[in-house]
């Protein structure tokens, strides 16, 4: 059973033991509109918290996905290159971006839980 965390950059992080799975939130995909291109990191890439990890593009916007924690990428969701629309259709599930090791669990303390993120999103509009 994993625990869900969120960042202010509208990423979600599902932590299961020593592994973190990262994606973008439903709010993020709605803001971007139709996603047309995704570039995910390759396994083995070492990321410090805050590093640029992936790229997501819609017709009108492009943005980076940042590493929410420090660790090493274990797997990128390569299916997204072929079917970027998955990010729109299933942002929290099939539309995950990459999995990475969690090197320092204390970094999770800086992230939001589901309720805090919901309040954060509500404050934006």
């Amino acid at each position: 059973m994993s625990t869900l965390y969120f960042t202010e950059d509208h990423e979600w992080v599902a932590v299961d033991g020593n592994t973190a799975t990262v994606g973008v939130t439903d709010y993020a995909q709605k803001q971007l509109g139709d996603v047309v291109f995704v570039e995910v990191p390759e396994a083995g890439k070492v990321l410090a918290k805050g590093d640029e990890a992936a790229v997501i593009e819609s017709v009108k916007a492009a943005s980076e996905v940042y590493a929410p924690v420090t660790g090493t990428v274990t797997e990128g969701n390569t299916d997204l290159a072929e079917t970027p629309a998955t990010v729109n259709d299933s942002p929290m599930d099939d539309g995950w971006f990459f999995r990475m090791s969690l090197d320092d669990a204390s970094e999770l303390d800086d992230l939001m839980d589901e309720a805090a993120y919901a309040a954060f999103v509500a404050s934006l509009d």
Binding site: V36, F37, E57, S58, V59, K60, A61, A62
Partner: peptide
């Protein structure tokens, strides 16, 4: 593919 361009990506 205009997201490569400067009016969206600016310094990138």
């Amino acid at each position: 593919l205009s997201t490569r361009e400067q009016h969206i990506r600016r310094e990138k």
